Amino acid sequence: MATAQSFRSGGHGSLARVGVAVSHGFTGSPVSMRPWSEFLADAGFAVNMPLLAGHGTTWQDLSRTPWEHWYRDFEAAYLELSSRCDTVFVAGLSMGGALALRVAAKHAVAGIALVNPGLTFSDRRARYSGLLKHVLKSVSAIGDDIKAPGITEGAYSRTPVAAVHELSKLFTDTIPLLPRVTAPALVFRSTVDHVVPESSMDALRAGLGSQEFTVVSLSNSYHVATLDNDAQQIFSQSSDFFRRHAGAI
Rank of each mutant, 00 (worst) to 15 (best):
V103R: 08
A104Q: 07
D193P: 12
A100K: 14
V224S: 02
S190A: 04
D230H: 03
V139T: 12
T57M: 11
A113G: 15
T191D: 00
E38T: 10
S29M: 08
E68V: 14
H223L: 03
A105D: 06
G44F: 10
V196T: 13
A77H: 02
V164F: 04
T182M: 06
A108K: 05
F235E: 14
D61W: 12
A203V: 12
W67I: 12
D73I: 11
T65Q: 10
I146A: 03
R127N: 13
T87G: 01
D173E: 13
L81Y: 01
V192T: 15
V135T: 02
R124V: 10
T191P: 02
Q233W: 01
A246N: 08
V90I: 03
Y156C: 02
V161H: 08
M1S: 15
S239T: 07
Y222D: 04
E198Y: 03
I146Y: 02
G209A: 09
S210C: 08
I175E: 04
A100I: 10
N48A: 09
V164E: 09
P176F: 01
V31S: 08
F89V: 01
H55F: 08
V192R: 15
L204I: 01
A16L: 05
F74T: 11
T58Y: 04
Y78H: 11
L178M: 05
P149I: 01
S83I: 10
R17P: 09
A77S: 07
R205E: 15
M201I: 07
H24W: 07
A183Y: 00
R64C: 14
K169R: 11
A183Q: 11
L218E: 10
G118F: 00
L40F: 11
Q211N: 14
A108V: 05
D73H: 13
G44A: 08
V164S: 14
A203Q: 03
F7A: 05
F45L: 01
S32C: 05
D193C: 09
N116E: 00
N220K: 15
G150K: 04
F188H: 01
S138V: 03
M33W: 12
L99H: 11
N229L: 03
S190I: 08
R84V: 15
M33P: 11
F241Q: 13
S94P: 10
T214H: 04
Q211H: 10
E80P: 03
S32D: 03
V215L: 06
R205F: 11
G130F: 02
P30V: 14
F235H: 07
H55Q: 11
S200T: 02
H245Q: 09
R84I: 15
A231P: 00
K106Q: 14
G10L: 09
F235I: 03
D230A: 03
R180S: 13
R34Y: 05
P179Q: 13
G44R: 01
A105Y: 07
G19H: 10
L79E: 11
H223S: 02
A126R: 11
V90Y: 10
T226N: 03
V109G: 07
H245P: 13
E75M: 04
L227D: 01
A4H: 01
L40Y: 08
D240E: 15
G143K: 12
T120G: 08
T65Y: 04
L227N: 01
L131C: 07
